[in-house]
Design a protein around this nucleic acid. Structure first.
Lengths: 224, 224
DNA sequence: CGAATCGTTGAGCGAGGTCAAGAAAAGTGG
DNA sequence: CCACTTTTCTTGACCTCGCTCAACGATTCG
């Protein structure tokens, strides 16, 4: 595991691009992210990169390490990260609160990954980015980190591209479309969503022909 | 849940296209697939479909139901399926063998889904299909259902398309390329892999320029 | 204030999608 | 075993969404 700068007994900090865990590590602790963002990713031999999970404040990184797993994909800090180290041995025994939290987080991971698979497999660039921004807002909101219809969004367009399976250039162009459609306001690592429902509707894809008439958005008409 | 034809006390059968679980169900039992294949999928409003998990003989469907989860995406049989119902209450209590198996299966699901995300986000059609066929062979082999370099492969090209995020037409064309390259032999629901290593190499993507010289496949040279 | 990193724009291209139609299997019922 | 239907596979022509390459602003940060 990467060397870390100790802040207190079990609180650790990472700088951007620093690894929280490397492939094949056998981690002896789980991190609870207190501040900052991190991601799990995979790198193909020719440099193509795909992010397979985002870790926001309040997330466990990663629950499955509790059951003695090796790290299958590396974790890296996207911003400065402050986290609490949770020693794995402290939960080898049965049902504690933490044990339950980790189980719940693990199942949530399965659900979220299934959604990402749908997004990457079947959604357009516009829908994928809308989906990502919507998911980020919702997760921040759940942790009380959204204010009004706004929250922090420290991901660069390059990282957004690596999450959505697109090119930085195309992410840029698509974001401009979304901005000019009034779907999002995104600048200086801050996200505003004028109409949450409209964004969700774009992220979900067009309504079926039958009920398109009644539920069509005034901002983003369903496409073709 | 869909009505099922009871075969014995806890063994059930499903015909192709029959649902093992519907969205929002609160399942009271987990299935252990004994025979046949099933999948989890999501359907967008306009008909686009994405498969988010495959269930092969020996798989649990789905582990997370054991911890009182609702079904977030429906499960449908792809072939005739025979499965064993495992009552959820029988494992609400602590560490049994089954309990451990489910935990392990759940973590394996996270890893496999992360791989699918990489495939869908960053791999070409050729690489995705190679990856899928390789994964299927490996999983069948683990269960002793591979014979030589062959195993059953009941997925239609349409289903392969819904797994890989492609079009049935393009799956067809890509399979022809793979066949003519000698990478796979796939006919009448039966898969043969002449050179497992070559297939894995295609699935993994090109080697980095540095070591391409030494490890290049004689069958499928790394592209560009 | 200089150096990275990040964002923006343009021109051209290509992998994969769409539409349509026909051939080959695989079920189904008599 | 054989007509019949349905599903699956295959092929061709054409199109588009998103990628590539390249250059130039705009931020951020030391």
């Amino acid at each position: 595991m990467a060397s870390v700068a100790s802040v207190s007994d079990d609180s650790v900090c990472f700088r951007p691009h620093q690894y929280l865990a490397r492939e094949h590590d056998r981690p002896n602790a789980i991190f609870r992210i207190e501040e900052g963002w991190a991601c799990r990713f995979h790198l193909l031999n020719d440099g193509r990169r795909q992010v397979t999970a985002l870790f926001l404040p309040g997330d466990y990184c990663e629950p499955q390490w509790g059951w003695g797993r090796r790290v299958s994909q590396p974790i890296v800090a996207l911003t400065r990260v402050r986290a609490v180290r949770i020693d794995c041995v402290s939960l080898t025994s049965r049902p504690s609160d933490l044990y339950n939290d980790l189980r719940i987080a693990l199942v949530a991971t399965v659900d979220r990954q299934a959604e990402w698979i749908v997004s990457l497999g079947r959604k357009s660039a516009l829908e994928r980015i809308a989906q990502l921004l919507y998911e980020i807002y919702e997760r921040m909101d759940e942790r009380g980190l959204a204010f009004g219809q706004q929250c922090a969004m420290p991901l660069t367009q390059s990282v957004i591209a690596d999450v959505t399976g697109l090119t930085p250039v195309h992410v840029n162009r698509t974001l401009q479309v979304m901005r000019s459609a009034g779907l999002v306001r995104l600048q200086s690592r801050w996200l505003r969503i004028p109409d949450l429902d409209a964004l969700r509707r774009v992220a979900t894809g067009p309504m079926s022909a039958l009920n398109a008439e009644r539920t069509r958005s005034p901002i983003m008409p369903v496409q073709s």
